[in-house]
């Protein structure tokens, strides 16, 4: 066997245009696919999010399905009924007259949890100064531990917020579950989900502080 036979013939270098064509073409095809998928799914995704929000508002205000509720936009330092033209990123709040005659407000708020942002909605009666219900809309808390704050059920963390006293000056307090009875504004935190529980309490308090003046000043005023 000669030495020359052992050396493989070097392949000719790939021309630069070919590298560019493959990557450019591949990128263009990938971009096209992504845009098509985006356009095809944006409407169903948006519709689903709106539905989740509507269900959430009715749930935390204890309204029957398909019951009407109203929406207000925070614009220019007050609540307005019409979304101002061209404004895309305004905060919203919802309210409805509840079966018992009181006016309940539904607030969406978010903040940092243990793993990621927690987004929740809660119902609030500012006149009576108490929470109506709470529901976690999005969370990525640790499965088996922190995600207990998003659990449903009669003994769940979210159920503990129903009826809890809250106002701008008396925030909700998260306390360790023990034998001592809770004050009206205290909520038992979940063992194993302490950070996530506190985060939920903090988000609620922040939202109450942020919305209380606006709600009190509004024409609906809660009455």
């Amino acid at each position: 066997m000669s030495d020359a036979a052992a050396v493989p013939v070097p392949k000719p270098p790939v021309p630069a245009w070919k590298l560019l064509a493959v990557l450019g073409g591949g990128g263009a095809v990938a971009g096209l696919l992504l845009v098509v998928a985006y356009l095809a799914t944006i409407e169903p995704i948006r519709a689903h999010k709106a539905q989740v929000l509507a269900d959430g508002v009715r749930e935390v205000l204890a309204l029957p399905a398909d019951a009407p509720y109203e929406e207000r936009w925070w614009s220019g330092g007050r609540l307005v009924a019409e979304r101002p033209a061209g404004a895309d990123d305004l905060d919203r709040i919802w309210f409805a007259r509840r079966p018992d005659g009181s006016v309940g407000w539904a607030v969406v708020a978010e903040g940092n949890g243990f793993a990621d942002r927690i987004r929740l909605i809660f119902g609030w009666d500012p006149v009576a100064g108490r929470l109506l219900a709470l529901k976690v809309l999005e969370s990525k808390e640790t499965p088996g531990l922190g995600d207990a704050v998003a659990a449903d059920g009669p003994a769940s963390f979210r159920a503990r917020f129903t009826g809890v006293a809250v106002s701008e000056t008396t925030p909700v307090r998260g306390v360790k579950a023990d034998a001592t009875p809770n004050a009206p504004n205290e909520v038992d935190t979940v063992t194993g989900a302490t950070v996530s529980s506190r985060a939920v309490v903090k988000i609620v308090n922040g939202a109450v502080r942020r919305w209380a003046p606006a709600v009190a000043a509004s024409r609906e005023g809660g009455r």
Partner: peptide
């Protein structure tokens, strides 16, 4: 081409995952 295969592979994976992500969110929230 061998020279750009890693870039091409990663592009294929990333595109596929992103499209799948969008489709799953659109079809089954």
């Amino acid at each position: 081409p061998n020279e750009v295969r890693i870039t091409a592979f990663v592009l294929i994976i990333a595109t596929f995952v992103t499209v799948a992500d969008m489709l799953i969110e659109g079809l089954s929230p």
